[in-house]
Design a protein around this nucleic acid. Structure first.
Lengths: 215, 215
DNA sequence: CGCAGTTTTGATTTCTGTCAACGTCTGTGG
DNA sequence: CCACAGACGTTGACAGAAATCAAAACTGCG
């Protein structure tokens, strides 16, 4: 189960709410903020862009996620965030959160959990990118998303929303969109998964899981 | 400059000091601890091992590093730590650190800095593994280590201790030891670096830097 | 000395990227 | 309602990067 601040502390009032259309950048790598934004609706991606234009997506953000958890501690976001679908998010003042943090040990634990989870996911990503094949990476991405969605009550059994384009999958797995297309086609051909209408269903959970955990 | 707790808070006394010989595991992925260990001498590696035996090194630990920064918040280390050289480290009680954390805002900032740095390095690693070639990854690993050593006064100009075996470099960069050997040979042949006696010197800093930042 | 761990080198294979062409879908404006 | 443009997805031929395999030399050490 992944930690999330699905219910922000009731004493805390958002200072702003925003709505952003799909494919729009929410904020850039060098931006500074004194607010901490939480996603309440839609999907986004946190990414880094290299000077040759290639991108690495570090994490997909779904409802309940902090947009950039380093904003909890300082004004630097450190990565670019882009809306995938239409996104609604709410901002809280960092100063408010910080002072609550020091007085409310419960909130402190919640935030620590959030941080540790984020770091573990960053490490998992590194392991995937460093040591796994294209098939494994893609299967693991899908299963990881499904697990996170499930833990927030946002999945329906083996079916889940899947608004990602193949280039998102490519940018997240360190592959090219062309290769992602080939791997997904092969998954479909083998009857492992099905993608219709921006929804993904895992048809053979056991076999699919095996691909993700080959090593 | 990378954050480090080179000088632990003076009021805090280590509850234990240890010395571990080279190549010995300091602790395992599933171990639980109520102490937070800091390296005071030697190099170690934090790694994850997959079931087929392949490993991904997530970070090299040098003097001043917390052995596993997730230990600040909970008893789970989440990865294996192995000594590369002989290592000396000191342990502090998590409970002591935690209660100081809530009273001493200065320490709080220091620790936040440490966390953010750790996470940024995890993200950098993911970007390197996902989007860069073997040459770039190896050059960046070397330069990253040099920078961290320099910021702690542990490097001598363009020369630094380099106790890593080629398999360490391979495990950290997602490559094989064979390929690392070929790339390092090529670097040497081009007169970019020199490795003698477990010491590495960057002979052409500008050119070497360029390899690391090609994209 | 002998042994285990390391490094080097070359031949070959596998995986993934690149390039290019084409088909589909979606939303927009006439 | 249709035409069109841009984004997206698919496919095949080919190229390139790194892995794998194998053998041999080197290193440090009990």
């Amino acid at each position: 189960m992944s930690a999330a601040l699905a219910d922000p502390p009731p004493a805390l009032l958002p200072v702003a709410e925003h709505s952003i259309p799909a494919r729009r950048v929410i904020f850039r790598q060098r931006d500074m903020h004194d607010v901490v934004p939480f996603i309440c609706h839609g999907w986004a991606a946190a990414a880094v862009t290299l000077s040759d234009g290639s991108r690495q997506i570090l994490s997909f953000l779904i409802p309940g996620d902090i947009v950039s958890s380093s904003l909890l501690f300082g004004p630097a976001a450190h990565c670019m965030v882009e809306a995938i679908t239409e996104v609604h998010y709410r901002c809280f003042r960092r100063e408010d959160l910080k002072s609550m943090l020091l007085t409310d040990p419960d909130l402190f634990d919640k935030i620590s959990r959030l941080w540790i989870d984020g770091k573990l996911r960053a490490y998992d990503l590194a392991v995937d990118l460093g040591r796994r094949t294209a098939d494994e990476r893609i299967a693991r991405l899908i299963l990881g998303l499904k697990e996170r969605l499930t833990s927030r009550g946002l999945a329906q059994g083996e079916t889940m929303d899947f608004p990602l384009r193949q280039h998102h999958v490519a940018d997240a797995t360190g592959l090219t969109a062309v290769h992602v297309s080939k791997v997904l086609s092969e998954f479909r051909r083998r009857g492992l998964i099905e993608i219709n209408d921006r929804c993904l269903t895992i048809l053979k959970p056991v076999e699919f899981q095996r691909i993700a955990t080959m090593r």
